[in-house]
Nucleic acid binder design. Structure first.
Length: 301
DNA sequence: ACGGAAAACTCAAAATGCCC
DNA sequence: GGGCATTTTGAGTTTTCCGT
């Protein structure tokens, strides 16, 4: 029995919607390559050997589409927390400037300018067109002509510089101020990641820099048992969400756990002293607070 | 002809460039 | 800021070179 896709997560339907909507404000030449024999396609097929151009005009469209899509996708999740999703969040304290705001954030208010304590989660959106598509300009018909293994592009989180950009931006937030220490940062994509990054995303989670690289695309490959379509890395630094509920639970857990990011470079002696003093506090929470305070006081000097 | 060092090669990853 | 093309880098391996 064929399962009908009623999921709200990323799928071919969403990509189709992107093209349909964007074609109302853009000409096909801005969204598709044109092959030597006059076909309109989203990516150059793997076996295409003709003369190629490099399309630049689609980028801005897909960027704003996916950020808006993500904002709307997460609205229900935010609502359960009594919060809102906001696009383009600026918070100078933690390195989110007007030039590079947070793509999407879950915040206690609807304002674009936010105080650190009102930001519950920062979401970096890294999504692109995943499948290859062919457009028929005379009929307006759009059809999927293969998954990302069949074309030459490298979509979303499969690109190493996309991952590095995400890491760079997150580190920038973490080192801007301790005010960002309680805010989870997650990367939301629509593709798997390459195996060369499996260990790195797990380590980024373990060290607290980024709480997760997530894919909202349950079936990125037409072959569902393809080895690259992993559900999760061993340390859960990467997760593929297969349903809205799954995603919502993960995000809500992250926000309600109230974790603290900390880092440093200290001698064992310095660390030992800090631990000794912190250990004088009566409860685990107080011990932790003192530990972090001492760690940070030292660092500020 | 031989061992060791330098040079050349290879493949993939990373950096850079450039366009919109 | 995203995405592709081009250039550079890096690691590992093979080939060449050189003095003995």
């Amino acid at each position: 029995m064929k399962v009908i896709n009623i999921s709200r997560l990323w799928s071919k339907n969403i990509e189709k919607e992107f093209f349909t909507k964007t074609l109302k404000v853009a000409v096909p030449e801005q969204l598709f390559y044109i092959t030597e024999d006059g076909r309109y396609i989203a990516y150059w097929p793997k076996n295409y050997k003709g003369i190629k151009a490099t399309l630049q005009s689609r980028n801005a469209f897909i960027g704003s589409f996916t950020e808006k899509w993500t904002k709307e996708l997460l609205e229900e999740t935010a609502e359960e927390l009594g919060a809102f999703t906001v696009q383009g969040v600026i918070c100078e304290d933690i390195g989110l400037s007007a030039k590079s705001p947070a793509d999407v954030a879950i915040c206690k208010t609807r304002d674009q300018h936010q105080k650190p304590e009102n930001i519950l989660m920062i979401i970096e959106v890294k999504m692109s067109i995943v499948w290859n598509w062919e457009y028929n300009p005379s009929t307006g018909e759009l059809k999927s002509i293969g998954d990302y293994t069949t074309h030459q592009g490298n979509p979303g989180l499969l690109r190493s510089d996309t991952i590095l950009k995400a890491i760079g931006k997150s580190i920038n937030i973490r080192v801007s101020s301790f005010k960002s220490a309680q805010i989870p940062i997650v990367i939301l994509g629509n593709t798997p990641i390459t195996d060369s990054y499996y260990e790195k995303v797990d380590h980024l989670k373990k060290t607290g820099v980024i709480q997760g690289f997530y894919s909202t695309n349950p079936q990125p490959l037409d072959d569902p048992i393809h080895k690259n379509n992993i559900k999760s890395t061993p340390g859960r630094g990467f997760l593929r969400f297969d349903s809205y509920e799954e995603m919502k639970q993960e995000l809500i857990n992250l926000i309600s756990e109230e974790q603290e990011f900390f880092s440093g470079m200290k001698t064992k002696k310095e660390l030992g002293k800090i631990i000794e003093i912190a250990n004088l506090e009566p409860t685990y929470e107080k011990k932790a607070e003192m530990f972090l305070k001492l760690l940070r006081d030292e660092n500020e000097r």
